[in-house]
Amino acid sequence: MPQEQRLAAAFVELSDVHRPDFEADRYTQVLARHAASLLDVDAAGWALADESGRLDAVGGTTDTVRLLQVVQLRAGEGPAVDSFHSGQPLSVADLNSDSRWTAFRTAVLGAGFAAVHVLPMRVLGGESGAIGALCLFRRQPGELGADDLVVGAALVGVATGCLLLKRATARAEKLSAQLQTALNSRVTIEQAKGILAERRGTSLDNAFELMRAFARHNRRRLNDVACAVVTGSPTVTGLIQTSAEKPRTCLSGWLS
């Protein structure tokens, strides 16, 4: 398949983020696979940050590359870590002549790679920081060509934008669900107040206080008590009944 067609196929696949089984780790793995196929590199790895901004997930096109990414995270240093924090691309054309990141450099050279290039996963011109980094490994020393840098930046840009969109959508859906739950809870409580006020012949405010005191005394959630009142559950019989309705015990007459 010609390079142009492979590049188009990569962008189409990276744009598909609306699948119900979408997972950020698996998606970033797709990015690494396309980068390794389209660019003049031998392998690609990735590191992805969680919602709090801490790098906590890694992967690669081979098991060896994935382990190299693990080395960076455990050591807390490496080109991916540096690029992630700086938000800038980082290139090491020959690891043999670079003394940084001792543990990582030793592991990379031992794995047969001589050069590493990193592209931060961030939106160009945006105010938000990076959400990860893409590492490109070469067995021969050397810089990436200008065309490869352009294609790599485009792949990372599309992937980053899609991941950020997916995260924003997930946050919005979570907030919407929380607001709906809060609204449903409020409606249930208001219904329970009305029922309780009518049964006890009291005000809505007093009905709410009775319900809250009952929930606290019985160590139950207020909304659970309200649901029980609305559904007429026997678990709140003592709350709903007025004093006149409460059953008399064998000691009631003697105590009255």
Rank of each mutant, 00 (worst) to 15 (best):
R6V: 02
L7F: 15
A10R: 09
V12N: 06
V12A: 14
E13K: 12
L14T: 00
S15F: 13
F22H: 09
F22Q: 05
E23A: 14
Y27P: 10
T28A: 11
T28F: 09
Q29G: 15
V30N: 07
V30M: 10
L31K: 01
A32P: 09
A32N: 02
A32Q: 04
R33A: 13
S37H: 13
S37F: 08
L38H: 08
V41M: 05
W46A: 00
L48R: 00
A49T: 00
G53E: 07
D56Q: 00
G59C: 03
G59P: 11
G60T: 10
G60K: 04
T61C: 01
T61V: 06
T62H: 01
D63H: 07
Q69K: 04
V71H: 03
A75G: 15
P79I: 03
A80R: 04
D82L: 10
P89G: 04
L90N: 06
V92S: 08
S99P: 06
R100W: 10
W101D: 07
A103V: 08
A114N: 10
A114T: 15
A115G: 08
V118A: 00
L119M: 09
V123S: 05
G125T: 10
L134N: 02
L136R: 03
L136A: 02
F137G: 03
Q140I: 13
G142P: 08
G142M: 01
E143Q: 11
E143T: 09
A146Q: 09
D148L: 05
V150I: 13
A153E: 11
L155E: 07
A159C: 03
T160K: 07
C162I: 05
L163D: 01
L165W: 12
K166N: 06
A168H: 10
T169M: 14
A170W: 06
R171K: 07
R171G: 00
A172W: 02
E173S: 04
T181G: 14
L183T: 13
E190V: 12
Q191R: 11
G194D: 10
F208R: 15
E209L: 13
M211F: 07
F214W: 12
F214K: 04
R216K: 11
R219H: 15
N223L: 05
V225Y: 04
A226R: 02
V229Q: 10
V229D: 07
V230F: 01
V230W: 00
V230M: 02
V236A: 02
V236M: 05
L239W: 07
L239R: 09
L239C: 06
Q241F: 08
S243V: 15
K246V: 15
C250T: 11
L251A: 09
S252C: 05
W254V: 05
L255N: 07
L255C: 03
